[in-house]
Design a protein around this nucleic acid. Structure first.
Lengths: 184, 184
DNA sequence: TGTACATCAGTGAACGCGCGTTCACTGATGTAC
DNA sequence: TGTACATCAGTGAACGCGCGTTCACTGATGTAC
């Protein structure tokens, strides 16, 4: 039954990828390890060969998800320069497609209130995720970190609100926040 | 065993109050109805005499919590006028004391990512909560609803971020966001 | 106002179910000689 | 390079536990006469 080191590393990454999607889609607490392992093509018993606990997986999944979306935002921004780079990031983040794709989007927006209750390890990992996002923005706005933090807060709040609200109200929130961020 | 109508109404309110605190503190999914009922001084079997389902309680608890904090924010704002009223709201909402008091604070910040996954009934109730908050702000800022929505998004995002981050980074987020909101 | 009866708030046990975690086991991989 | 053995990735059953919901029951409250 034993797998090679390479296969084991692939398995571990597969578990993280599946978890990152499911945690964002259904919530951390609502997602069982049995579901995650099954989606990764395994039985649940083997989980603890790869992770110390569910909490550790949460931290890894959050980091993995954020790295992916930061890369996407960087791509969007890299084509433009300065303020236009910032607007490209806002365009991508504060959008209906991001709102409608929680399992492929920002982990802080998708599971923010659950991350706040995580253990220290999870919160440290999530904080680093947030810092990455702030950095992407800080590189493009004029007044450095302070303004970037403000913009990121508005971005996260906008997606959170828009995912709760229905139809027109939801879209209006995205439009309004985007409009004000563009004017920064 | 039967209680009077007045007592039954008091019981129902007590369940809502307890639930509103526990949902905000521990999360919706992580809070069991047995715990809620026990804290309200009852056994869990009687729950369904008062609510159709847990989801219905979530909606009620969210509405109740938001009504309370909107009243608090209104109080803070009512003493000042115009922009100063807005700054008083920001001062209260974007604060370390709000961050450190999730079970007494804004339900959207405390359980936002879980509310987004609620049933339609829950999301409608939560949307109305958000609208109340937007209204409180809209009355005090210059450019109407558009700017109020932007400010509320930043406020919600700031508390969400600050509850994940640790120590200085957490406080810094609050300071930065407050500073930029004051400058609106 | 007094009596008979229906209502229903609250109890406590039970329903089936899934949770995170542990563990004995299997057998291919990795290592030491 | 070949052999013997230790390691450990993955399996599948089991651990104790709490979940949301249902239900028969109790007895005080509310209502109809």
């Amino acid at each position: 039954m034993r797998k090679s080191r390479v296969e084991a590393a692939e398995t571990r990454q597969r578990i993280i990828d599946v978890a990152a999607r499911k945690f964002r889609l259904d919530g951390i607490h609502a997602t069982g390890l049995t579901d995650v392992m099954a989606d990764a093509g395994l039985t649940h018993g083997g989980f603890y060969r790869h992770f110390e606990s569910k909490d550790r997986l949460v931290a890894q999944a959050c980091a993995s998800a954020m790295t992916a979306i930061v890369a996407t935002l960087e791509d969007s921004a890299a084509e433009k320069d300065g303020k236009d780079g910032f607007r490209a990031v806002v365009e991508r983040y504060v959008s209906a497609s991001h709102r409608d794709d929680p399992d492929g989007g920002c982990p802080v927006a998708a599971m923010g209130s659950e991350l706040a209750r995580g253990d220290e390890n999870t919160r440290v990992a999530a904080s680093e995720c947030i810092d990455e996002l702030i950095e992407v923005v800080a590189k493009r706005v004029g007044h450095g970190r302070s303004e970037a933090v403000f913009a990121v807060a508005a971005m996260i709040g906008a997606i959170t609100m828009s995912r709760i609200m229905l139809d027109d109200a939801s879209t209006q929130v995205l439009q309004y926040v985007k409009q004000h961020l563009d004017a920064i």
